[in-house]
Simulated assay, not measured.
Amino acid sequence: MAALAGCGTTADRTAAPAPTKAFHWTSSAPLISPQPAPDQTIYAVKDPSIVNVNGTYHVFMTTAGSVGWGLAYTSFDKWPDAASAKIVPLAKSPMGPGYRAAPQVFYFAPKKTWYLVYQGSDPLYSTSKDIGDPMSWSAPQPFFPVVPDIVKLPQGHGWLDFWVICDDRKCYLFNTDDHGRLLRSETALGEFPNGFHNTVAVMTEKTEDLFEASNTYKIADTNTYITLVEAVSPQGRYFRIWKSDGLDGKWEPFSSAPMNTFAGRDNVEQLWSEGISHGEMIRTNADQTMTIDPCRPLEYLFQGNDPAVHVADYIKLPYRLGVITAKGDNPVSALCR
């Protein structure tokens, strides 16, 4: 007798594979590396943010050089073209020179405007109407008129690596502090980029277990959000992953791997780097919802460094950018409908 629809036989249920609860990846070679600059030595390219618009990748990054930290831009249509694509410093745009790092780029659909979020001493943003024109970015503007008390020394530890994501009511700004805290601020969608307030700690762990470079996404066609935060181990940097049913909700581990690992030395094949550090998911759209498609193989653009190169000065660590691609099923792909 045929089994009833949706029930299956005992043998069928026994044979069905259990949903995977961990991630596995394979790595590209380094794809984006420093290029010669007329005014300084560029040691590293870091902290990438990426969107794909009409078939073209747009990548923003931190440059680490002999005159300090800055932001830069490159674009290309296919990954084999990334290495030869020109990297353009943004210091000559209206954004101007000075300390800038850790960019995040997205299209804010309600205002039909591109936003570039980055860190100065505090969270800053610039805007553009043309993501393909690196000279179009506006002068920096602060998100906060006054630094929140939770961030100020001595009770706070400063803030860095800012990340904006919005739902249909509010925009949230997440950041880390290199001391084991993930912080969140909020504003109404209609007030963005103004009005951020209510800065609170939403996760607190040991410093090395919740370090920096948080990035948060919505999984398409679900009510699930994921957040990734970089951690530090003796084997190098790696990312951990949590999930929530809302940007203002509680974050719970989203991997059964030790330390709810998302990506690191233990689960990335062909890895040329000491670990997996500051990066961003390659998303299915470019807007403020930060949506990823669970039905497509996950790709993550990351910064990595050669484990054989040891330097005392952090700015001289030879970071390069590469891509890891998910292999097989994982907790995100399990949500594909």
Rank of each mutant, 00 (worst) to 15 (best):
G68Q: 09
K46D: 13
N54S: 15
S49E: 08
F60Y: 15
T127C: 04
V51E: 06
P19N: 01
W137L: 03
P36M: 11
P110Y: 05
S126K: 01
T63W: 04
P80G: 09
T62Q: 13
P30V: 12
P103G: 05
V59G: 06
S28G: 08
T26I: 14
L71H: 04
G70P: 02
Q141M: 11
K86V: 14
K86G: 01
A91H: 12
D39L: 05
I150K: 04
M135N: 15
M95S: 14
I50F: 00
P94R: 10
T41R: 08
K78C: 01
D149S: 09
P97W: 03
P94Q: 13
D39H: 13
I131K: 05
F143L: 03
A91C: 02
D47N: 15
P134W: 07
T62C: 03
Y73C: 10
L90E: 09
V146R: 04
Q119I: 03
L124D: 02
V105W: 07
A139W: 05
I87N: 08
Y115W: 06
Y57T: 04
V146I: 09
D47E: 14
Q35L: 04
S121K: 04
T63L: 14
V53I: 14
A44W: 05
M61Y: 10
P19V: 11
F106C: 05
W25N: 09
I150W: 00
S49V: 13
T127V: 13
L124Y: 09
F60I: 07
L116H: 03
G65H: 08
F108V: 08
G70M: 03
P103W: 02
P34W: 08
